[in-house]
Simulated assay, not measured.
Amino acid sequence: MSRNVLERVLHQLTVDRAAKQRFREDAAAYLQRFALSEAERAMLTGFDVLGLQQAGVNPMLTMGFWQELSPERDMRAYMRKLRPLGAHEPVHSAALKP
């Protein structure tokens, strides 16, 4: 997986209005221009913020992505995504990159 490419995509989606609009209209088409694996594309289109953070993506980028583009956009839902009920894993909100 390419953490750098994921981070570049997330940054662009949080600061560029045209990119946000293209992603909203057709996320799959928008993501085709980036060197991403199918698993990475699935994390982005599925708003899998836990998977993104476990891949080493900066937590601030995943939070911005969620707030800007997620269908839910509620921070309680974001936190539930990071810590599914019953999970005993730590929340990756301040994870250091390996």
Rank of each mutant, 00 (worst) to 15 (best):
R24G: 02
N58Q: 12
L85G: 07
R8V: 12
L10Q: 05
H11A: 00
A28D: 14
D26R: 07
A29P: 00
L69W: 07
V9T: 10
V49S: 03
Q32R: 14
T14R: 05
T62F: 03
K97Y: 12
V91H: 05
F34H: 07
S2T: 15
F47W: 13
E89T: 15
R24E: 13
T14W: 06
D26K: 06
T14K: 05
T62R: 03
R76W: 00
L61G: 04
Q12F: 08
E7I: 11
R83I: 11
M75N: 09
H92F: 12
F34L: 00
R3P: 02
M1W: 02
E89Q: 13
S93F: 11
Y30R: 06
Q21D: 14
R22P: 01
G46L: 06
A77S: 13
D26S: 12
E25M: 07
R3H: 04
R73V: 07
T45P: 01
A39F: 03
R3V: 15
W66D: 06
T45V: 15
L96P: 00
P98H: 13
P98S: 11
D48F: 09
E68M: 09
T62C: 11
V57H: 01
A27S: 15
V9E: 05
A28S: 13
Q21F: 06
K81M: 12
A39D: 14
L69V: 11
R24T: 12
M1P: 08
R41T: 15
R8P: 00
P71D: 07
L50K: 09
A19F: 03
G56Y: 04
Q12N: 12
G56K: 07
M79N: 08
V9S: 03
E7S: 09
G56L: 07
V9Q: 05
K81T: 10
R41D: 05
L10R: 06
L6I: 13
M79R: 08
V15S: 08
L44R: 02
D48S: 09
M63K: 12
R83N: 11
V49E: 03
L10F: 10
A77F: 01
E25V: 14
A27P: 02
F65I: 05
K81N: 13
F23T: 10
V5P: 02
A77Y: 01
R73I: 06
T62H: 05
A42F: 03
R24N: 10
V57E: 03
V57W: 01
V57R: 02
E7Y: 01
M60F: 12
L50N: 09
E40P: 03
